[in-house]
Design a binder for these strands. Sequence first.
DNA 1: TCTAAATGTTAGATTCGTCTAAGATTATTA
DNA 2: TAATAATCTTAGACGAATCTAACATTTAGA
Lengths: 163, 163
Amino acid sequence: MCARKSKKFKLTPAMEDYIEAIGIIKQEQGVARVRDIGNFLHVKPSSVHSALSNLSKKGFVIHERYEFVDLTPEGEKAAKDVIKRHNILLSFLTMVLGIDRSVANRDACLMEHSLSGETVQKLMKFIEFAQNCPGQEEPEWLHRFKHYYQTGELRDCRKRAGK
Amino acid sequence: MCARKSKKFKLTPAMEDYIEAIGIIKQEQGVARVRDIGNFLHVKPSSVHSALSNLSKKGFVIHERYEFVDLTPEGEKAAKDVIKRHNILLSFLTMVLGIDRSVANRDACLMEHSLSGETVQKLMKFIEFAQNCPGQEEPEWLHRFKHYYQTGELRDCRKRAGK
DNA sequence: TCTAAATGTTAGATTCGTCTAAGATTATTA
DNA sequence: TAATAATCTTAGACGAATCTAACATTTAGA
């Protein structure tokens, strides 16, 4: 339990952040520049540069001197994957737990690198479950949770029918 | 969104891991030695040593040459805090999402360093809510989620009474 | 067009967390 | 108790991720 040294991830959290940033910036602005990435991640252009040359060697980004930054197909795939993890966490934190969006975003940014595939899957299903209960804006159990959170009071959690 | 460089944490994830390990080992075996900590975290004794001298300078651990390792009151507090975050995540992953314990533990180890106070609070309440629904081993909504997860089928999520 | 501002790159330093290898100390046991 | 085993410490190296400061290139405006 709690071993240090990940092994599991080919990409470090930092590298995932760069790839994610490039994906988001490209999506928002069409192209990504060194400066944009630096602003997005709050690091200096020189840091971006060294990260990019690393990711370039590893085959995730394309970056010619003084040019725009782009993702390779593998980079695109990685970006989509991190962004998905981020959004799943964000949805859970805001929709289910009712956490403030900015706090939720910060937490999601940090946690998005640590989720196993299994957890991503199940969390996604859980959010779907919370969203898809038909015929209402919010399912009853979630409403009850919010009530419990605010008042500390557990209202009728009646036994389920079968079993 | 997604700024690198935490600023927020006085303790790095690595340092939190060391403190947590010491707390757990002390709790299980009475005393913690360099070697135990190294085994626990899968790092070499020399790494433990340098971490300890760092934590010692910062006032979280007490460590005299060739002696057992101990936590200062501040270290105890920090250990309790991380362990709590770990356990909350573990409970959520296993009990609510139904994730395999070993996977859940691995995820919890990585995520435990990234939870804001607000998220810890709400997640704890959520688990209490799932546990404390009276008169049953598992609340109905959780049962429904598991059904949904296994079959993809949403059973009657009836409208809640009021509102 | 040519110069100033913006942007990008390079070199070199720093911090963190790890390692290996060698030596020091403590514990065990023959 | 003396040799051996286990444990701990030190020294030095390395990779990752960042920074600052100086320099190069591109872009845009006068």
